[in-house]
Design a protein around this nucleic acid. Structure first.
Ligand code: FES
Ligand code: FES
Lengths: 144, 144
DNA sequence: AAAATAAAGGACAATTTTATCCGAATTATA
DNA sequence: TATAATTCGGATAAAATTGTCCTTTATTTT
């Protein structure tokens, strides 16, 4: 469904949000440790998320990654997925035709679009805050 | 969503079904031409589909690939996806945890499972015959 | 029986994705 | 001002996926 990079990106963003709720700024090393992901690769992904304004970074000692409380509400999963995986998931054809096109649809078009629309709605309506709060109360996990 | 191999596999299977409805057995070359896919790679995928009994192959002159009319009803998309991409799409966690597990769910679990369940139902209820008939009447396309 | 046709299968090549490493830039603190 | 901590960015490496080529096997036709 999502690329590895995107999976790490979402987990990382949720962890940053969780820690920001506690007023803590976190380093790449801590993030990678807590979400169980490869450090250097995670660093690359955090750079992407920073460039696309999903999270905020601060260099130097005491630096790290953080996200404003208000941004946790406006940042939706769709922004993270778009920043990392692009819009393939939105415009691509399920059977791999050049593009999804209702005028000349592939045999799976209608059924595929129905599911993709649900996925899109879900991604566009789910905020980072929502995901972080589940973690906060111990209902959900970022690693096992 | 699906791998390239799986996309080619589904398109190929639908084309074989369409031609079998007309009583024609088709070669790898014709299939690759008609679904606009790389020939040798498509041949590999057709081997997988043959081994997993999705389609039937005949060697030698006048040989090629075909599928029985009755099998077009029993063969569902889920079988093709499973034969080529395995069961990742069914058991995998949306955020990349080792496995999807409701006892220790990732933050996206509930929302992800809802969509995955719909996808699963769709794949399990869509037959090759159903996809081939749309093509037959010129409503859908396998290439553009 | 020989020749021709088509799938099967193995080895290899190219591309993309995932992952690592290391030096440069930035900034707080001693 | 020097040092250390931290992100940034480029180069490179490893692994997985996608794609090609060529030989073998089965089968039909001559
Ligand atoms: S054309 Fe294939 S999904 Fe729309
Ligand atoms: S645990 Fe992540 S989707 Fe179920």
């Amino acid at each position: 469904m999502f690329s590895k990079a995107c999976e790490y990106g979402i987990r990382a963003a949720v962890y940053v949000a969780l820690q920001s709720l506690e007023g803590r700024r976190v380093s790449v090393n801590e993030i990678a440790e807590e979400i169980d992901s490869p450090i250097a690769f995670t660093a690359k992904i955090l750079q992407q998320l920073t460039r696309s304004k999903v999270i905020h970074s601060v260099k130097g000692p005491t630096g790290g990654f953080e996200i404003e409380r208000t941004d946790m509400d406006t940042v939706k999963l769709s922004m993270i997925v778009h920043a990392i995986d692009g819009d393939d998931i939105y415009v691509g054809c399920g059977l791999g035709l050049k593009e999804c096109n209702a005028k000349k649809p592939c045999p799976l078009h209608d059924k595929f679009v129905a599911i993709r629309t649900d996925l899109k709605k879900m991604l566009e309506s789910t905020s980072l805050y929502e995901l972080a709060t589940g973690l906060e109360v111990g209902l959900t996990y970022l690693k096992r």
